[in-house]
Structures are given as C-alpha cells and as structure tokens.
Design a protein around this nucleic acid. Structure first.
Lengths: 214, 214
DNA sequence: TGATTATATGACACGAGTGTCATATAATCT
DNA sequence: AGATTATATGACACTCGTGTCATATAATCA
C-alpha cells in the first residue's frame, strides 16, 4: 500500500505517477518493470518514489488492484444495464454479455486490460500471493453461474461444471489476449473489437450446441 | 546456432550444458534467463559459453528447437501407434489422441513442456521472430484437421472452423499449462496426469455435443 | 620438433538497476 | 520567529548481469 505521503500529493502529480506506472506494467511483466523508467516517465526524483512506495511490488499491487476495480465497475455498469433490460436471460446470454463487456473494456482501456492479461501469464511468488488473496474468484464465479443454470435445467445434467467453467474462463482470457496482441503494447488508443465479438458468438454457439453434425 | 566447437565437444560435456540450459529455460522466462546461472550449473567457465554460443538467445533458439523436435517425435510415436490400431478414427478421437499424447509428454518431460508453455506466454521480439519462422503452424494444423472433418460430414457445416481451431488450440495449451502449474518448475520428476486426462474427456464431450440441455 | 590452429579460462570494463541516506526545503505549530 | 514535523532530492554504494580479451593450454600438422 502506498504511503500517506503519496495520497497527500496534489491529484495531478499523483495521477501522473499512476499513469506512468500503468504504462510500465502494461508494457513489461512484473519482473522487468523498473523504478528507473517509472520515475523518468513521471518526472519525479528517485528518492521520492521510495517516499511513496516501499518498493515496486508495493506499487504493482496498488495498480493491479486499481485495474481490477476499474474493470469490475465497468462490468457492473454494463451488466446491470443488460440485467435491467433482460432479467430472464439464460446462461449463454449471460456469459455472452460478460464476454462482450470484457472485450469492450479491453478495447477502451487496453493498458488496464494488458495489465490483467500479463498478470495471468506471470509465474512467480507475487502471482501466487495475489491469487491466494482473491482465491480462485473467477473460477468460482463461472462455477456458480453454471451450477445454477444446471439446476434450472438450461445445461445438460451430464456436463461437468468444473470442466465447463475452466473452458469459459480460459477462452475468455484467450480471446481478450488475442485482441490485445493486435496492437502495440505501448499505445493507449482504442482497439477495434468487432471481429472478436463475432468470434465470441461462434465460440459460444459451439459451446452451447456442440460441433458434431446433427 | 551453436558453433562447431560446441558440437565437437565430448557428448558428456555437451549434454551437461544442454541439461543446464533446459533447467534454466524451464524455470525462467527468456528475459530472466542468465548465462551466469547456466555456466555455474554446467560447471564451465564463462568464456567457454561464448565460445559455444554467440549469446543466450542463440542457446535459447537451439534448446527451443530441440524441445519442439522431441515433442514432435513423441507425438509421431504415439499417434502412429494409434493410427495403426485405428485408421478410421473420427476427428474427436483424433483430437483426443493428440491431447492425451500431449499430456503424457508433459507428464514425462515436464521441463521440456514447460519451455514450450513459457514460450507461448512470452511477449517480445524473440517470440515474434520464432513465431514468424514456424508460421501459425499449430493453428493451421487444427484448421486442416477440422476442415477435412467438416467435408467428411463429421462436423456441422455451420461451425466456424477458425473459431473451433482457436478453441482446440487454446484449451490444449491451457490444460497442459494447468498440469505443469501443479508441480514445482525446478523439478524434473514425472507428473500425474490422470485427473487432467479425465478433464480432457469432459471438455471434448462438451465441444462435441454442446452444453445445452437436450 | 617446431609451427600452427583450436580450445579453454577468468579477470575485467561496462551497463542497468536497486534502496538508502545526508542534506535541503517547505509546511505547520506554539 | 523559532521549533518541529513533513516532504523532496540526487549522489552513492551495492548487486547482478553481460560480452570481451589477453593469456594459457592442448591438439594437429608438416
């Protein structure tokens, strides 16, 4: 957690530091991120950095949490719209909404999405530490969603919920990552998501109906 | 490509270097791999390293190519067995064989599998360079397999082959990665794949028949 | 054997990054 | 104002890594 000193900073300076950090963590995996580059980008003296954060891990955790929060807000925003208009959507519709909103988020905030995408590719103690914190939250999320749908009879009783939620999670991650790979990691310009939304529908069709000829 | 000097080395010494390199690249992503650790592990002087390889990238490319070759051999071995016993398998059976053989490979050669798994998570010029070399070979592979199956009428004509091959590729990668995540990256002991093979069957069932209640 | 070619070796110069600390400056309090 | 507390600053010592090079040793050739 950043120090009080950091939070006492004038908003503009604080934002500049946050922005530099986002740029850094969007472009480099955690182990390659450097304080040197961040302070240069933010135009603050190196000593100040250590007045605000205990180390780069401290900053990373803060930025990661900020990203997650931003995405959750975005999803709530877009999902509640959908729920309002359509409270009786089936699982496949619900999951589609989730995928589509996720892609839109990645299209609008590519740097934040990239931080998330990079995170899941990490393989170090920090990741295990953070994952431990938020449990397998996402896995559980799909698990609960699918379990309920199975009880409502929307999903075949023979389907293994663990396998299904693994697939939904994995494919969601992969399609988002694919989208992000299209553009350069450095830029923050809005991405075109149309082709990927199309792909989502193709994938969900398969997950719902299967590929075997009828 | 390693130098002639490297290939002229007594087999034992060469193997020791290769082994140290495999251990390094299995444990660290390319950018974090270090010559210092490799020469220490292999017990050769630093100067010798540069007599054998132009730099660590040179070594990485060699080891990566070696891994790929080993996996291909393994698959050919295990797939041809299957084709011999069962030349008329349908796509789902073929893909199952591929998944299962891939998991068995990862179970038997976790370090080599880890190198592959890490590679796909990389995001740097080296990856783009290597990917350019071998095209989207894997994507094409599934694409061809599925295209043929669609013509044979095993796969529904409405199914989008690009989406389907993306799914097969992604899930294959993810399940293998999941297996490798179970054990510590450093060790080379054989992994237990049973639960993952079970999972494969659950996933392929869904991909074939869909999740929707009948 | 003497010369030539191949291989081995590790000290070294250099670069990039980290976290700290003595010192300077600003803000707040009495 | 004088004292105290908060913040800013950048030089510095340190670590870890890279690639090279002068020198030593071994192998091969004529």
């Amino acid at each position: 957690m950043p120090t009080d000193t950091f939070f006492n900073l004038p908003a503009e300076k604080r934002e500049k530091i946050i922005d530099a950090a986002i740029a850094e963590f969007a472009e480099y995996p955690f182990k390659q991120a450097s304080v040197a580059r961040i302070v240069e980008q933010a135009v603050i003296p190196r000593g100040s950095f250590y007045q605000y954060f205990v180390d780069i891990k401290d900053l990373y955790q803060y930025i990661f949490q900020l990203s997650g929060q931003k995405k959750l807000e975005y999803l709530h925003q877009h999902m509640s719209d959908m729920l309002t208009n359509n409270g009786d959507a089936d699982v496949f519709q619900q999951i589609r909404d989730l995928y589509i909103a996720g892609l839109k988020f990645a299209g609008e905030y590519p740097r934040l999405a990239r931080i998330g995408s990079r995170f899941f590719k990490e393989d170090n103690d920090l990741k295990r530490e953070i994952m431990g914190d938020l449990e397998q939250k996402s896995d559980d999320f799909f698990g609960a969603l699918l379990g309920q749908a199975q009880q409502r009879g929307e999903i075949d009783a023979t389907v293994d919920v663990r396998a299904a939620s693994f697939m939904f999670f994995t494919l969601n991650f992969a399609i988002t990552d694919h989208l992000l790979a299209q553009s350069d990691p450095n830029s923050d310009s809005i991405l075109d998501t149309d082709a990927f939304m199309e792909m989502v529908d193709q994938m969900l069709y398969i997950l719902k109906n299967g590929m075997a000829a009828k």
